[in-house]
Amino acid sequence: MKIEDYTVLEIFKNVSFTKHELSIIKDRFEKITLKKGEILLDSKNTCKNQYFVYSGCLRSFFVNDDGKDFTTQFAIKDWWISDYISFFKNEKTVMSIECLQDAVVYRLSKEDFEFLCLNVPKIETFIRNKLQNAFASFQKRILEYLSLSAKDRYYNFINSYPEINSYIKNYHVASYLGITTESLSRIRKMNIKS
């Protein structure tokens, strides 16, 4: 099913397209509606898609051999999400993606992604900029994890993503921050008393 012109323009903000380019792009995306709790991607396959979040909230997570869950990313409106290791390197998926709040996402396959980058160069520039920003954010997160206290990581999280913090569960936030839910509760109590 083709997506609408206005949806393409929302996905690729601040990029102008010709009518011909719009028609090429619209054929490449597939709309998916998800309910809270649904798994969009499980860690048993190779990830062949990336997803643009039109509405709702999703998270990517990894489960280690001991069954411990680690949230690696949250994604809300206007964000992209995938298992990028699997998507770009064609390796087995290690991440899963769960819907935390009813969502509408637009799926773009790797094949269609490559096609669009070749046939609509503006998209390659747009995606490159998005990936550069994402890489910088992941690197910043690693540095914060290595150098900041749990309390400081939490404050950075709520200041950076206030809209996410308001509707996700404590254990997802704790998992993202690399702390226990008990530690998160203590930090929040200290914040209330301050």
Rank of each mutant, 00 (worst) to 15 (best):
K2A: 09
I3H: 13
E4T: 13
T7Y: 02
E10W: 09
E10S: 15
I11V: 14
N14D: 15
S16F: 11
F17P: 01
T18N: 09
T18D: 10
H20Q: 12
S23W: 00
S23F: 02
I24N: 12
I25M: 05
R28A: 11
I32A: 00
T33E: 08
T33L: 05
K35F: 04
K35H: 05
E38M: 10
I39Q: 10
I39K: 14
L40C: 11
L41A: 01
L41Y: 03
C47S: 11
Q50D: 02
V53L: 11
C57N: 10
C57F: 07
C57W: 04
C57E: 13
R59T: 07
R59L: 06
S60C: 05
F62L: 01
F62A: 00
V63Y: 11
N64Y: 06
D65G: 09
K68F: 03
T71S: 08
F74T: 11
A75K: 10
I76D: 14
W80S: 06
W80I: 07
I81E: 02
S82V: 07
S86V: 07
S86L: 08
K89D: 08
V94K: 05
V94D: 00
V94E: 04
I97S: 02
E98N: 12
Q101C: 06
A103Y: 02
V104T: 14
V104Y: 07
R107C: 03
L108A: 01
E111V: 06
E111G: 05
E111C: 03
F113E: 13
F115K: 07
L116E: 01
L116P: 12
V120H: 03
P121T: 01
P121F: 00
P121N: 04
E124A: 13
R128S: 02
N129E: 15
N129Y: 05
L131T: 06
A134R: 01
K140F: 14
I142M: 12
E144L: 04
L146I: 08
L146T: 05
L148M: 13
L148D: 10
S149T: 14
S149H: 05
D152H: 11
R153Y: 10
R153Q: 12
Y155M: 15
N156Q: 08
N159E: 10
P162E: 08
E163Q: 13
Y167E: 12
I168F: 02
N170E: 15
H172T: 02
H172C: 04
L177D: 07
E182T: 14
L184Q: 11
R188L: 12
R188P: 13
K189N: 14
K193Q: 06
